[in-house]
Design a protein around this nucleic acid. Structure first.
Lengths: 194, 194, 194, 194
DNA sequence: AATGAATGAGGATTCATTCAT
DNA sequence: CATGAATGAATCCTCATTCAT
């Protein structure tokens, strides 16, 4: 997977993996370089500093998720698609034995106040994701599949918040049970608005 | 507030503040000692190492929250009490300009796989908190204030997940709007079960 | 000024500016290349290594000063010319707010013992400059405009030393006052020998 | 000489030696620590960063020179004392085979615009030194040993400038000849004012 | 004549931890 | 209870130089 990609790509992908596992501070530049088989100089050749690499990682994540190259995609067209959305996150956690959380949540949580540029990049991804969910709910409502009182934006916010909280709580408790029950409740709630 | 407390207390409280702000890795022992006006020796006298301090911080947090010394307390006895629960977290975020997240969520997210002891301590807090919420819902249900199909445990999980996700998303987006809308939806849902 | 010069010229001129501002070690090859809009390959094509670039800079400086292309020229033919000599250096310092010193003094001071080749190049420039001053004093003495006891070589040395010391002290004190007073004393002394 | 001094003293003295030989940038912290048999931590324990060490070095130099612990002292009380002043610098250069310059001149020349705090410290030393020379000339003048037209401050400036320029030119030319002749001219000039 | 990818040594700094007093 | 000296690993970053195209 990292075979003959460019050094830059290898660095970004290795960084993503390590940031996801241990957060930004927990992943050293040296380790990222070792994993991506690149020298120190390659790092500063392509990135101003570690923050520059973080930004590249966030941009990369946003790009692959937006383009739907990744499992947890956001191109819902039916209620069935949507009902599987939480499931994909829960499935991911099960695959990794609940040792990880959401990569962007992890990165976002690790940022400090002086990294506003990075924070905005992470926020931009969440804005887009929430908008995808909101668009779906708005379409369903326009099709008469949601009651008049349903607020598409608020429903989207609820889903995002439950997803992020669920991913984090799964990591901390090493179990998806909590996440699954919370997701079920959300689905019940939304079904009650149909 | 840290005036004539013992050196140990001052260290724990300073560590809590800094861990909350910047995560475990982001707060150096030196800085914690400086803030708590303590020397290196005091540190190793009271704690085996940095992990020992983290554990003390988690225990301290659990203690003050369980004992209700802190605003976001868990001693609900009425629907009104409960409805204010999210509000206290949202109010906290507003006070700190959305620059922080939940201290235990932040700490929990920062832990690595080899810090299982600490993870269990954090989990223990969440288990307790969730149990408080579940107890409240069970009591309401026993009092006939929740429909038969309502699952107290699942509702508690939903609340915890929304609280954690909401705190994190507020930090990342520097706004409580998302959190507020998600919390409103949860309250609407629960009201619909009454 | 660096518009359509050759890459080599641009590199030498950029290096001169940066060496002058921050010394040899303070100016990185990368920065010099960026400023001269040249690539890494251009650098190694024209120069063996950084020392080779330094040598080219010293040669360039000597060439432009010898050829009189630069303000502080050494083609004195009258006492008036000479009396303006210190003034040109003082004027330069004022223009640059005393943030620089003599470029060759700065470069010479930065050299280490293993850079003897470069040191000789710098020395060669100072030998030539001193010789110009000495020639002038010798001519004046031959014309009967200096007393018998006046030593043209010693006077030239005094001028060079005061110029270098004055440039350095102006940089350190951020003022030309010291330099101006010292130069005035030298001029008084020389006038007393006429 | 560095035997059982404190680690801090050893670091400062080693730094002085290396800064004197190769300038600030030319002396790495690692090398200074190796020479002073101190670990990395000792460095940051005592100094904020490399600039902090430079400042300590400048302060140390100023202290030992002011207190007269060093050869090139500034406690003139007679013309003989004064006439030996240049000689001590010239003698120093001969001892070190003209491989060094004035330590404070070297340090001062190495400073960049963002090191204003350090520059002021260096300037402070030169202000003091110049004041010592000026005081001496003023006393001589008061004693009727200098003509009315002699300006003590200007003479002091001349001496400082010749000393700094002489030290630098000696290093560059690897010879004290220039410095000696310039110093002789200054002494001749001052004698002519007696 | 030109580009920029790649390398790796070295430099400054931070940090957790131990130890002597 | 308390101080702070000392250690050395690790981290982030800079830089001169080489090489393939």
């Amino acid at each position: 997977m990292e075979a003959k990609n460019s050094a830059k790509e290898r660095m970004v992908q290795s960084a993503l993996e390590l940031f996801h596992q241990r957060g930004i501070r927990g992943a050293s530049v040296d380790e990222i370089l070792k994993r991506s088989r690149a020298g120190k100089g390659q790092f500063s050749h392509y990135f101003k500093n570690k923050d520059g690499l973080v930004l590249a990682v966030v941009d990369y994540l946003e790009a692959i998720i937006r383009s739907g190259q990744v499992d947890s995609n956001y191109s819902f067209s039916s209620w069935d698609d949507f009902e599987g959305w939480f499931g994909r996150y829960i499935g991911f956690q099960k695959e990794v034995d609940c040792e990880l959380s959401c990569p962007l949540g992890t990165i976002g949580n690790d940022l400090t106040n002086d990294q506003d540029h990075l924070r905005r990049a992470v926020k931009s991804f969440f804005d887009w994701s929430t908008a995808q969910l909101a668009r779906f709910f708005a379409e369903r409502k326009a099709a008469g599949e949601l009651v008049e009182s349903a607020d598409p934006d608020a429903l989207a916010d609820l889903c995002m918040v439950v997803m992020e909280g669920g991913m984090l709580m799964s990591k901390i408790t090493r179990s998806t049970a909590l996440f699954e029950r919370a997701a079920d409740q959300v689905l019940s709630y939304i079904r009650s608005l149909r």
